[in-house]
Amino acid sequence: MSLVTEPFAYEFFRQGLFASVLVGALCGMLGVYIILRRMSYIGHGLSHSVFGGAVVGYVASINFYLAAGLWGFLSALAINATARRRRIGADAAIGIITTASFAIGVALISKTRSFTRNFEAALFGNILGVTPTDLIIVAVVTIAVAAFILLFYKPLLFMTFDVEVAPIYGVNIGVVDSLFALAMAATIVASINVVGVTLIAATLVIPSTTARLLTDSFGRMIVISTIIGAVAGVLGMYVSYWLDISSGATIVLLEAAGFLVVFVATTVTRRRRSWTEQPVSTLVHDRTGDDLG
């Protein structure tokens, strides 16, 4: 029992736990839309973009959240606009914009080496460094994104399912898509201190992909993915404390392990089910196949 209660004595642990639960849930929730819209690469790219914005903000001594958030949002809009030109694929647009942003960050860091440490934290996450301000930001972003998903549940679902037909039924794609880009940029900026630029994509993609294996209903997928993210946040903090390893990496590794278990379990049960339900003719067919082989 003390293994569970002991770390609570430390303020950094309580704050870290709070932050990682929220970030896990937040990324799990938004990740559902990201994988269903096949935007995983955008998530990955945007976190790199945000890094560039953060460095520029630091150098120009602008507030981190303002600079990184604005930069991320503008990058998302720029990706949308570039990808709409028919001769440029969305993947290429993402590659150009986000990598260039990241390169700006790297260039500025290499010029002024004095703050390398901070940015190592930004790259790999440093939950020990979570400040009360960070916590407030994470909480506000989580509440705002949850409210967005709840209030825009219907148009978001329609747009995610069929972006061609949704406007015919009156969904304003421009508005919903821009708000979604904003939610994504905010989520990434809020998560950077906990999981780091390099690991954010995983926290967006793994819980939602795992949830997809567990249900065929969109509504249930969001709930399951959010829970997986939050649970991974809690367990990740503890495992990271006990084993003294990086919190971001621990959360991602736990999520990956969870995915593996679910993947194997669902594959086995599906195969067993299809085996028992296999019609006789198929079995016969299989045998003739063997004979021929």
Binding site: L36, K154, L157, F158, F161, A166, D216, S217, F218
Partner: peptide, 11 residues
Amino acid sequence: FPATVREVVLM
């Protein structure tokens, strides 16, 4: 896409 018949119709 993870959607039941009901979820699609209600769109």
